[in-house]
Simulated assay, not measured.
Amino acid sequence: MSTTSNLSMPPIGVGTFRLKGDDAYQAVSTALELGYRHIDTAQIYGNEQDVGRAIADSGVARDELFVTTKIWTDNFTQDKLIPSLRESLDKLQLDQVDLTLIHWPSPKGEVPMQEYLGELMKAREQGMTRLTGVSNFTIDNLNEAFELVGPENIATNQVEIHPFLQNRKMVEFAREQGLHLTAYMPLAVGKVMKDKTLDRIAEEHGATPPQVVMAWLMLQGIAVIPSSTKRLHLESNLEADRVQLTADDLKFIRELDDGERIANPDFAPEWD
């Protein structure tokens, strides 16, 4: 089995949520060509095959990449989790992913956390994933996970964070616990492009609003995985780490928080 390097998660990645077929293939291909080395997908996105094809066709060495996938809630039981990850690896044309996340806490706690986290640990022991983590976990969920498998086995919690949902309780908890966070939907599905405050800050820095938002997140040590099918946007997003925000900028961004959550399915946990 080819092993991946000890590469840690690059702070900017390309997300593939809502991208299907050729859109997913082209977005990942373009991202890799531009220099992205962190790719995020999930079983439920239905695009692991397209992402895998883009990786295979890119010619980028495997040990330069950081690839994440997520286990869907239907695959949490003992008989399903490992086979489902094996299927994901086949689709991705990889021997191992860098990170496998539990996509959501089990709806209504139908599958005990002990069962699905236990299976995830087994998958790692079998070499299927280098790191393990969670997504959409609340502070209560995380405390339970830490008790069951130890905080060292939760490489990240991937959650919705953007200027309009700053998820401060979670950010504070993560900081106290030394837990890494990854922000999905960091651009609030395009809403950041329409905000006057972000527009003004961007103008002052000769930047774009998405660059400002990603710089703000990375300043907090949070990784970002925006998705885009447009080459120009992918290219521009990659430059976000050049933006140097001031204390005033941070104060104005802080005031944008209105608790507006975009990803809130009926099976979501009780948010913090």
Rank of each mutant, 00 (worst) to 15 (best):
residue 4 T to S: 10
residue 7 L to W: 00
residue 9 M to T: 05
residue 10 P to W: 06
residue 11 P to K: 12
residue 13 G to K: 09
residue 15 G to S: 10
residue 17 F to A: 15
residue 25 Y to P: 07
residue 26 Q to S: 12
residue 27 A to H: 05
residue 28 V to L: 06
residue 32 L to S: 04
residue 32 L to E: 01
residue 34 L to F: 05
residue 35 G to P: 04
residue 36 Y to V: 05
residue 37 R to E: 10
residue 49 Q to E: 15
residue 57 D to E: 14
residue 57 D to F: 03
residue 57 D to Y: 07
residue 59 G to Q: 09
residue 64 E to S: 12
residue 64 E to F: 06
residue 65 L to G: 08
residue 73 T to N: 15
residue 74 D to Y: 02
residue 75 N to V: 00
residue 75 N to S: 13
residue 78 Q to G: 02
residue 82 I to M: 03
residue 83 P to R: 05
residue 85 L to N: 02
residue 86 R to P: 00
residue 86 R to E: 01
residue 87 E to A: 14
residue 90 D to F: 03
residue 92 L to F: 00
residue 96 Q to F: 00
residue 99 L to D: 01
residue 101 L to P: 01
residue 102 I to Y: 07
residue 103 H to N: 06
residue 108 K to F: 08
residue 114 Q to F: 04
residue 116 Y to I: 00
residue 116 Y to M: 02
residue 117 L to Q: 07
residue 118 G to V: 01
residue 121 M to R: 13
residue 122 K to D: 01
residue 122 K to E: 13
residue 122 K to Q: 14
residue 124 R to E: 10
residue 126 Q to D: 07
residue 137 F to P: 11
residue 139 I to F: 14
residue 143 N to W: 00
residue 143 N to Q: 15
residue 144 E to A: 14
residue 147 E to K: 15
residue 147 E to P: 00
residue 147 E to H: 13
residue 153 N to A: 08
residue 156 T to E: 08
residue 157 N to D: 09
residue 160 E to H: 06
residue 161 I to S: 05
residue 161 I to W: 08
residue 163 P to T: 07
residue 165 L to A: 12
residue 165 L to H: 13
residue 166 Q to T: 02
residue 167 N to H: 14
residue 172 E to S: 14
residue 173 F to T: 11
residue 174 A to M: 09
residue 174 A to W: 04
residue 176 E to H: 09
residue 176 E to Q: 14
residue 176 E to T: 06
residue 179 L to E: 06
residue 185 M to D: 04
residue 185 M to A: 15
residue 195 D to W: 12
residue 197 T to M: 11
residue 202 A to S: 12
residue 203 E to T: 14
residue 203 E to H: 11
residue 204 E to M: 11
residue 220 Q to N: 06
residue 224 V to T: 15
residue 225 I to A: 05
residue 226 P to W: 00
residue 229 T to N: 03
residue 232 L to G: 12
residue 236 S to P: 06
residue 237 N to H: 05
residue 241 D to V: 08
residue 241 D to N: 12
residue 245 L to Y: 12
residue 248 D to S: 13
residue 253 I to L: 11
residue 256 L to E: 01
residue 259 G to A: 09
residue 260 E to G: 10
residue 260 E to T: 14
residue 260 E to H: 12
